[in-house]
Design a protein around this nucleic acid. Structure first.
Lengths: 108, 108
DNA sequence: ACAATGTATCAATAAAAATTGATTAGTCAA
DNA sequence: TTGACTAATCAATTTTTATTGATACATTGT
């Protein structure tokens, strides 16, 4: 269904946009090791608090991260559901790759 | 090695940026079916020639597409090498996911 | 209640990316 | 050679994102 596919593409575009930044990829790479509090990430990334907060929000809004407060600290972690969804989406993409159609001539 | 990893992240960010747009994803989805000439893509996407050309260039610059001229037409296709590279990169990412470290307390 | 700490949010600005229309550059056919 | 056609590129503008510094909010310890 066109509508569904379009919606999927929109969602995928959001995911990819969130991933299209080196700082955010560093965050994710770090979170692969497990949950981290913002203060640790700040130190790890050597960046301003406000800037980090912005990127964390970007990732969270894209559904890639979860956060949880514990006392004054906030811990971020990867959202495993989203990660799997992305994996599934990419697989479905790969599937389409398989059915190659005969070369089309062009423009008519 | 840090330097290498950083370079990889930079490359990945470029890939993801190219993928972070619904129009470009539509192009790729279409190219999964095989090589297409620009005129076909124009019709398929129902968009302006200049705009399409911009997005094709974006994808090509990211190394995701190849093009080839045949007479007055230019055909675009997916660059399989790049696609595999992305796949491998994602797999290496997944691998890191496996070695989960014990939960760190926080900030000291 | 107050001060200190960790983090989000806001407002202003800067930087990057996308859109549009016009122009240019190849290719073909008459 | 001219004209028609396909597609890239350019310039101007608009839109979107990112950065920075300031401020606000929640939590904790005193």
């Amino acid at each position: 269904m066109i509508a569904t596919r379009t919606k999927d593409l929109g969602q995928a575009a959001l995911w990819f946009h969130a991933l299209a930044d080196e700082t955010r990829l560093k965050i994710i790479e770090r979170l692969l090791e497990g949950e981290q509090c913002v203060c640790d990430l700040t130190e790890f990334l050597q960046t301003g608090q406000s800037r980090l907060s912005f990127h964390l929000k970007t990732l969270k809004d894209a559904g890639l991260l979860k956060d949880r407060r514990e006392g004054r600290w906030i811990y971020y972690s990867l959202d495993d559901d989203a990660i799997s969804e992305i994996g599934r989406w990419l697989d479905s993409f790969k599937d389409k790759r398989l059915k190659v159609r005969p070369a089309a001539p062009c423009c008519d």
